[in-house]
């Protein structure tokens, strides 16, 4: 027995099953990201004065990722519209670009993460602070080499002046009191940054896998049941738009404000 309304829309609602399903799923996603955004707001509002970081992220990389995701939403819609007009080759082209955009986004995000993992804050035994990227080739068992600067205190570290001088710093390990990279464990800001962007990146990866599966291995459905295929593309497109919309909120919150 065939399940009703799996392809054709139900007359009273005008929706097919998968569309109802994806909107219910997106509603649960709104609650998930909404809760995390609320956590971010509470953490930020309750941070001591001058102790919430600014300018820790590269606006240009964030902006590039924003443009990449917005462009990918455009190609998703164009691919769906192409299928509606029966232009399968055009659909393949547009959706191929979408997959490339997703990979570009993930590559840039990985680069940003890597940059944070090689970025260290070193507190010396005399109380001075050194901050910069570790030079792995020149770091030895006795000495840590950084390409960085000397903030005068923790407050200066929270809002580093733009264009501050960068120098090569060599610190004997005996003089190091604590040394920690900018991973999620570093402070509240990096914790919420990695949680929000990490969860979002997982959604991007999941969306890209689904879009790729429909675009590649499942493309034969187009010949057997075109309407079902168009519905699948639309549902994956709705998910993709949601993921992009989350980024539209994440970018200003994390990179600008």
């Amino acid at each position: 027995m065939e399940i009703p309304y799996s392809v054709k829309p139900r007359p009273d609602t005008g929706l097919y099953n998968a569309k109802v399903g994806i909107w219910l799923f997106l509603a649960s996603e709104v609650m998930l990201f909404g809760a995390l955004f609320c956590s971010y707001i509470l953490l930020r509002v309750n941070a001591p004065d001058g102790m919430w970081p600014h300018h820790w992220l590269n606006i240009w990389l964030g902006m590039t990722n924003t443009i990449v995701l917005i462009f990918s939403s455009v190609t998703v819609v164009l691919s769906w519209a192409s299928l509606k007009m029966g232009q399968f080759k055009r659909y393949k082209l547009y959706q191929g670009v979408t997959i490339l955009c997703a990979l570009t986004f993930l590559c840039i995000k990985s680069y940003e993460y890597h940059d944070k993992f090689i970025h260290y804050e070193v507190i010396l035994t005399d109380g001075r602070i050194a901050d910069g990227h570790i030079e792995k080739g020149q770091t030895t068992a006795d000495t840590v080499a950084l390409l960085g600067w000397w903030p005068k205190d923790e407050a200066a570290l929270m809002d580093p002046p733009m264009g501050h001088p960068v120098e090569k710093i060599e610190i004997p390990r005996k003089q190091i009191k604590t040394m920690e990279n900018y991973g999620p464990w570093h402070n509240t800001y990096t914790a919420i940054y990695f949680v929000l962007t990490g969860l979002h990146a997982l959604h991007v990866l999941a969306g890209a896998i689904v879009i790729f599966a429909i675009w590649g291995p499942l493309a034969k459905v187009w010949e057997q049941d075109p309407e079902r295929y168009i519905n699948r593309v639309e549902v994956s497109g709705l998910f993709w738009h949601f993921v992009d919309l989350v980024w539209i909120f994440l970018f200003p919150v994390l990179y600008l404000l």
Binding site: S73, L238, L245
Partner: peptide, 23 residues
Amino acid sequence: SLKAFHIVFLVMSILLAFFSGIW
């Protein structure tokens, strides 16, 4: 539909672009 969601998304993107530009 995807069309309607795309328009909502576009409006949000335009707002983000002008907000970021002015900021």
